[in-house]
Amino acid sequence: MNQATGWALLIFSGVLDVMWAFATKKSQGMTHWGWGTFSLLLLAGFVIALSKALSVLPLGMAYAVWTGIGAVGSVIVGAILFGEPLTATRISYIAIIVIAIAGLNIGSAENPAG
């Protein structure tokens, strides 16, 4: 597998992670078996995709990107689908997450061995 495929799998895994968080919320503490089952399937899917991506991508960078996709995506899904507040403060912190991930990427490009 090449790195482009690894990044595609990583992004796919991040999207599955957001979907997993949504399904887990909808399962209401795993009391709704349909959503609970779907949640577990999504969990398995994102772990498999993430593990395949990590076979070709650097751990620190890949995990930071994956976590960022999950964090930012979950905030957006929560705001759109569950009416959770999306205040200026929350948007600012989302921007900080994105900037931090970009900074890690820039740092990796400056020092590929480290």
Rank of each mutant, 00 (worst) to 15 (best):
M1E: 09
N2L: 05
N2F: 08
A4I: 14
A4T: 12
T5Y: 02
G6P: 03
W7R: 01
I11C: 06
I11F: 13
S13N: 04
V15C: 09
L16W: 04
D17M: 14
D17C: 13
A21K: 04
A21Q: 08
K25R: 12
K26V: 13
Q28R: 15
G29L: 08
M30E: 03
T31Q: 04
W33C: 05
G34C: 06
W35I: 06
T37F: 14
L40A: 08
L40H: 09
L41S: 04
L41Q: 03
A44W: 01
F46N: 09
V47P: 00
V47M: 14
L50F: 06
K52I: 15
K52G: 03
K52F: 15
A53L: 10
L54G: 01
S55C: 02
V56N: 08
L59Q: 10
L59C: 06
G60Y: 11
G60I: 09
Y63D: 04
A64D: 06
W66R: 02
G68H: 10
G68A: 11
G68M: 09
I69L: 13
G70F: 00
V72G: 05
I76V: 15
G78M: 12
A79Q: 03
I80R: 12
L81E: 11
L81R: 14
F82R: 06
F82L: 11
F82E: 04
F82H: 10
P85N: 08
P85L: 07
L86C: 07
T87L: 13
T87Y: 09
A88H: 02
R90L: 15
I91P: 08
I91D: 04
I91L: 15
Y93S: 05
I94G: 02
I94W: 11
A95L: 15
I96P: 07
I96V: 15
I97R: 08
I99L: 13
I106A: 09
I106L: 15
G107Y: 07
S108H: 15
A109Q: 09
E110F: 14
E110I: 12
N111Y: 10
P112T: 10
A113V: 11
G114M: 06
G114D: 13
